[in-house]
Design a protein around this nucleic acid. Structure first.
Length: 760
RNA sequence: GGGUUCGUAGCUCAGUUGGUUAGAGCGCAACAUCGACAUUGUUGAGGUCACAGGUUCAAAUCCUGUCGGACCCACCA
């Protein structure tokens, strides 16, 4: 296998053919071997990368940890499944693709049409997904690609839709009017994670409200005010709480109640907040606590719908309102302030918090169970301190908006009898009208208009079950990507009735970046508990971010991204894997740069060269001697002058313990240290002494070496596979296996002292 | 505002129930070596483990506070 004439190791020479060898022999499949019935399984559902771009170092880091666990358990003779997949990544892909497709063409996705857009987007995505898969394989990820899933696979989509239907029937999802982040350019609701904040110079207007003065940056929403609020601790306004004040303003005369709420910052402006539940997230929540009316005056295009401002863009309306207020003498003063505004991550449009009819999921009850899972010990997060973050997020969870007004994703399986539309009436009341508008009659209404029934169904029903109307209009909205990806652990296994589900679920470990603990992990627990009554995994391992040399987060805009494939080209996969893992504490960010990978490349070369020493030493042995070594490795340890049997036992015990405790960084570090300094610098050097040149010592040497190769295999799979093949070819080890992947991982035999130098 | 985390050799970082002389890699200095490896070996210099208190027989490790950096959550009317 290894061409030991080479004085240094060239990964390029071997890695590709090793991948080919693993894949063509189906070695990554849990069916590669026939296991006895009650064999322990070890399953990781791999986090699906977004299929719209090449893998970045974060993916590669995750894949390395996942693969270490997979290979370790496979060598423990567990039945191992690492299940790969790719995610369609909703809005992210839609916008990436829109940019690609429409680059310079001047057309919008609407010009192309939904059907064509989705078709082209699918082609684009599948092409990229294929590329991503090839990259995963280059990393050595021993995932079962015969089971690979894509989040828009028919079977996956169907299960996701079934979940929605089940939840609808139980009242866990509902059509509701709540405040959401709205992007007027993308024309969709957005999750907080799809938005960001930027600082902007703006003005703070002090405006008279009767005898009071209120400071606001958004005077154009005055018409939607439904209360004034003060902090209950604020002595200045204590006497006003519970009273109603008469306000004369641009919208005529109205009465506003004064309420108390802790959300009000007494140090901002005058300490009085105008409450606009229809156009501010915070105000909406205050409104919920105090039962305030919700008035909408801005539409989906960021244009006002009110009175003489109707049709004006928000910015223009602000100017108009301010000049009208000035005319009425209601402006007290205007201050320049810096202030943060929320923008759409993709289009950089200012987010408008709007009332909107959307599909929401009730989350409180599910969150409670997800909290219990931790408390009962059904779920463990590594490192443990992250459990606090997890719990706090779940304790403060709010209903989840799961609908998006996008094209790239899974359609929400709903039909409206007679269709639906929304309008804002003259009172600022946003209404959704389903059917003819005269809802709730219950009679067999007119066929043309429909009765307004909401029908949940994957396939289009022929007629309305309530009124027999045939004019059923399909919901155009799609699911938030996370609604599907949080169901990934069981959808990928083929659903709760499948054989794979019964074999591999609940899975063992979820390994992912700590940045998606909330959006993904916590919700996966909720959805898993809902759909399967089980926590989908026992352990969660979180890794940190990969930073550039200066410790900065990699980002496209900064152009400081490190390409993992380029690193592999230059230094080899094993070196990159060690760089990402060795000596890195769980959850800790790490820097990646050339010199570091180079150092590990040197180590890999050391491994190669030490093997060269051994192979050259054994080259001239007779067949009988080789047979002796093969058959008797280890047995003669006690008779040899020189051996490191005890040290090896210690190492084995510690490495096993490290891995079991999710301390992969320590395990790799210990192995590398031991190999370099104990095995090479000390033991091998001693072996050069002619008095140690006897058959027993050689047997012991090969045995020790092979033990180390096995121990290192989960971390550096390529060179260890090559070494295994070479040992086998040269007749130095006895084995039935065709790959080191299925050899037994060394287990500790003794409980003796721990040698110095190893980190426990 | 709430929370988390980090501060250890010139640099990058390990150091898991507190326990001999605090470690590795890179870098640096000297030496060695063309029969495993110059992608090497040996030896060495370099640390008041951010700072100040406290607990303890014993603290890089636990507690409190201070300073400095990073991140997360909420909010930004």
């Amino acid at each position: 296998m290894l061409d030991i004439k080479d004085v240094s190791y060239n990964p390029k020479k071997y890695e590709e053919s090793i991948i080919e060898f693993w894949l063509s022999n189906n070695l990554f499949s849990p069916e590669y071997r026939k296991y006895p019935k009650n064999t322990r399984t070890f399953t990781i559902i791999l986090p699906p990368p977004n299929a719209n771009a090449p893998l970045h170092t974060g993916h590669v880091t995750g894949n390395t940890y996942q693969d270490i666990m997979g290979r370790y358990h496979r060598m423990l003779q567990d039945k191992v499944l690492l299940l790969p997949g790719k995610d369609h990544a909703g809005i992210q892909t839609e916008i990436v693709f829109e940019k690609e497709l429409l680059k310079g063409s001047g057309r919008s996705k609407r010009d192309i049409g939904r059907e064509e857009f989705v078709k082209q987007c699918l082609e684009f995505t599948l092409k990229n997904a294929k590329n991503a898969t090839a990259q995963e394989q280059r990393i050595g990820l021993s995932a079962d690609y015969s089971r690979e899933k894509f989040s828009l696979d028919e079977n996956i989509t169907r299960q996701v839709q079934e979940t929605f239907i089940a939840m609808f029937k139980e009242g866990l999802v509902y059509r509701g009017k709540r405040i959401i982040n709205w992007c007027s350019k993308c024309q969709t609701a957005l999750a907080d994670i799809d938005t960001e904040y930027i600082e902007e110079d703006t003005k703070l207007y002090y405006i008279k409200y009767g005898d009071l003065v209120v400071a606001t940056t958004r005077p154009e929403t005055i018409m939607a005010d439904t209360a004034l609020a003060v902090n209950p601790k604020d002595k200045r306004y204590k006497h006003l709480i519970g009273k109603t004040i008469l306000v004369k303003s641009i919208d005529g005369e109205k009465e506003l109640p004064v309420i108390e709420d802790f959300a009000v910052d007494e140090n901002f402006g005058t300490g009085i907040l105008k409450v606009t539940p229809g156009h501010s997230k915070e105000d909406f929540e205050i409104g919920e606590r105090h039962n305030l009316p919700r008035i909408s005056i801005i539409d989906n295009y960021s244009k006002l719908t009110y009175g003489r401002y109707k049709g004006m863009k928000v910015k223009d309306a602000r100017e108009a309102v301010v000049s009208d207020l000035e005319a009425l003498g209601l402006i007290v003063k205007i201050e320049d302030i810096k202030h943060k505004i929320q923008i759409c991550e993709r289009s950089h449009t200012v987010i408008e918090p709007l009332l909107s009819y959307q599909w929401f999921m009730k989350t409180r009850g599910l969150a409670k169970e997800a909290i219990l899972a931790i408390e009962k010990g059904d779920l463990h997060i590594h490192p443990q301190r992250q459990e606090k973050n997890y719990l706090r997020w779940l304790e403060n969870i709010e209903d989840w908006c799961i609908s998006r007004q996008l094209w790239w994703g899974q359609r929400i399986p709903v039909y409206y009898c007679g269709g639906k539309r929304t309008e804002i009436d003259e009172n600022g009341d946003l209404k959704e009208i389903i059917g003819s508008g005269s809802t709730g009659s219950g009679s067999t209404g007119s066929r043309s208009n429909g009765c307004g029934e909401i029908i949940v169904s994957i396939d289009k029903p022929k007629k309305c079950p309530k009124c027999n109307n045939t004019n059923l209009v399909e919901e155009e909205d799609i699911f938030d990507t996370w609604f599907s990806s949080t169901q990934w652990p069981y959808t990928t296994l083929g659903g709760t009735e499948s054989k794979d589900f019964k074999t591999f679920y609940p899975t063992n470990v979820l390994e992912t970046g700590r940045d998606i603990l909330f959006f993904w992990v916590a919700r996966m627990v909720m959805m898993g508990l809902y759909r399967t009554s089980k926590v989908p995994f026992f352990d969660v391992y979180l890794h940190g971010l990969v930073l550039d040399k200066d410790g900065l987060k990699q980002s496209k805009s900064k152009g400081n991204g490190v390409s993992p494939m380029e690193m592999i080209d230059r230094f080899g996969t094993d070196s990159l894997r060690l760089s990402l893992v060795s000596g890195v504490a769980p959850d800790q960010d790490m820097k990646l740069y050339d010199e570091k990978v180079k150092g590990f490349r040197n180590f890999i070369n050391k491994v190669y060269n030490s093997s060269r020493f051994i192979f050259l030493k054994m080259e001239n042995l007779s067949e009988d001697d080789k047979k002796f070594i093969r058959e008797n490795t280890g047995v003669y340890a006690a008779k040899t002058n020189i051996h490191i049997t005890q040290e090896i036992q210690d190492l084995i015990r510690i490495v096993n313990r490290n891995i079991e405790n999710f301390e992969f960084g320590l395990a790799a570090f210990n192995l590398q240290n031991f190999y370099h300094h104990t095995f090479c610098d000390s033991y091998l050097e001693d072996m050069k002494n002619p008095k140690n040149d006897n058959i027993e010592s050689n047997a012991e040497l090969v045995h020790t070496f092979y033990t180390l190769v096995k121990l290192m295999h989960p971390f550096i799979p390529f060179i260890t596979e090559a070494l295994f093949q070479t040992l086998k070819d040269k007749g130095l080890i006895k084995t039935e296996e065709i790959s080191i992947m299925y050899e037994e991982f060394p287990k500790d035999q003794s409980q003796k002292t721990i040698i110095k130098n190893l980190k426990v």
